[in-house]
Design a protein around this nucleic acid. Structure first.
Lengths: 340, 340
DNA sequence: TTGTACGCGTTATCAA
DNA sequence: TTGATAACGCGTACAA
């Protein structure tokens, strides 16, 4: 079922069929209808490979996700979902590539096989070899997240430093003077995961500004780790009255540990941080937090990418989102605890 | 940077380069090394479109996921992750297609554009027009889930009927006589979502077998809905002592509602069902449940698909998984409640 | 080991 | 203005 088949059945030449489909030459209404009827009848669609070969573009974009994709957070999942949706909207297909290591076959295929017109890169490290590879391969790309050298690429990111900073100020305003930052996993932070580092920076800066004490704890990206870390934290520092976190997946565990310690949120203990919007609203009590608009970010990343694909000389746009902190029900003025 | 470039730089013909790469003809060691050196130096990779055009296969498989991809459950996410991983392992790329409605452009592109060698279809309904479309388009495919006519396609699925049946028997053995099934969302069940229907069938069958009473409740796929449904359920049927569920996303909400009702799991109330393994283990108390091995299922679906692609005449394999119920800490003998 | 036809859609060029 | 012809993109595999 190729264009020749359609042409002969419609009694026209192959090019006429092509022109009728693309509209790059006018075709008489009668002929066009005849062609369209045959196409509808046979369910013909141009072969993607042949078209890509000729046009030099694939109408496909690559989405590079973290390798341990089983552990995608809700926020990351929100990115994936919104990117896929935005792509579908632009009639683009999305090729998924789980990548991380340097010698990644699937990632290399994306780059040098001409499989995609552009790439969206997730979970970027401060030093990320994939960025260099993409630059060298001359593939248009946009990061969700960015490297240490902000100017070297086009990206959209959450301003974790500012947001965690604001969280701490909010807690300090409520009278909290012992605050913990529950960060992402040790491995991730050690690997130079930007949000982890920037959250820490914002945290210490705010602590210094307010002259209060805090501790910074790395925590695995799951509920169990959240529970253990929080329990440990409460044991080691019983005077803590609030936690700020960027570790979405740990939240249910944090909550369980607080319950086990007979601490009610927000009466006895305040909880805030940076999490995806739906997550914050689904949580009980509803979470006072900076709501990351994962949905819009994916869509924005896609439009940045389309712009780059259309004109690779476009200057690098850098979008640093600092969504306002939504006051909900998980923070309250500090209350002196029995033993505090 | 195409094969001709490599050929001329290595001083051989294009076909020699091709043979050196594919190994389908022997090439002298010296020549092969010369070619490989040039390839390594320039980072050449065969153009995917040209290769697909000639070979008639794309080395890409399509993964059709539910459209409202923002609401993927952990289990579904596990499928996606494991499929992507299995594909990467087989050096295949994965094209993601969010589909659901009948007029889905991305889905249609998969079918008739020759973009993929095969398709893995998720979230199948009892009557699913996409199955017919795939059959008509003659695209090898494997379902994670299956339609009402089991024999018409190749699939791998969780035997919800049997598992929920076993859950009820387990609860009945513990003395529970008032049990609720917390199903997936009304919309999903109304749309003919198989697991919802089969879970209900297994539920009513087991109730009848044990001569006990139960109620079947549909519940939205999120924590909030879980909380509301459970609260409502406890209000309407205060004599309920156990819930079985296939609604993973509702679990945190179920738990919150139980807590609010001052019911401790498992002392006052038993909770069980069919959920992804990691989810069951992360839950507190650890969930007695049929652990769906989402990871292995994705990998198995992929190998079924590879088999079908290799030989489309392969008889349809149907794999109905009924993983044993793992006894953990969320079910216990019924305890007469104050008002019960 | 090399030359070359082929797969298929697109588009420049030529013809009517 | 519309239709037909042929070349092109690139890797593969048969014939030489």
């Amino acid at each position: 079922m190729n264009i020749g088949e359609i042409a002969s059945r419609a009694g026209v030449s192959r090019s006429t069929v092509s022109y009728a489909l693309s509209g790059k030459r006018s075709v008489s209404a009668a002929t066009r209808k005849r062609i369209q009827d045959v196409i509808d009848e046979l369910g013909y669609r141009p072969n993607a490979a042949a078209r890509a070969l000729k046009e030099g573009r694939t109408r496909t974009i690559g989405l590079v996700i973290p390798p341990a994709s089983a552990h995608l957070t809700h926020m990351q999942l929100g990115f994936v979902a919104s990117v896929v949706e935005a792509a579908a909207h632009a009639d683009l297909d999305v090729l998924l590539s789980p990548s991380g290591g340097d010698h990644d076959r699937s990632f290399e295929r994306l780059l040098s096989g001409g499989r995609v017109d552009g790439v969206i890169l997730m979970e970027i490290r401060l030093e990320d070899s994939r960025v260099r590879r993409l630059q060298d391969a001359n593939v248009p790309f946009v990061g969700i997240g960015h490297t240490a050298r902000a100017g070297e690429m086009c990206w959209i990111d959450v301003d974790y430093a500012t947001l965690i900073n604001q969280c701490v100020h909010h807690l300090a305003d409520l009278g909290h003077t012992r605050i913990a930052l529950l960060n992402r996993s040790v491995e991730l932070v050690a690997a130079g995961y930007g949000p982890g580092h920037r959250a820490r920076d914002g945290f210490t800066a705010a602590l210094a500004a307010r002259g209060i004490q805090g501790m910074d704890v790395e925590c695995g990206d799951d509920a169990r780790a959240g529970q253990e870390c929080t329990a440990q934290l409460l044991r080691d520092h019983p005077d803590i009255t609030a936690i700020a976190t960027i570790n979405e997946a740990a939240l249910p565990g944090i909550q369980r540990a607080l319950e086990e310690a007979r601490l009610t949120v927000p009466a006895d203990f305040s909880l805030t941080g940076v999490v995806g919007r739906t997550w914050a609203e689904d949580f009980r009590p509803r979470l006072t937090a900076a709501d990351v608009p994962a949905q819009e970010m994916g869509a924005q990343a896609m439009s940045l990418l389309l712009e780059r694909i259309a004109d690779p000389a476009t200057p690098f746009h850098n979008i640093h989102l600092a969504p306002p902190i939504s006051l909900r029900a998980s923070t309250a003025p500090v209350r002196r605890r029995p033993n505090g």
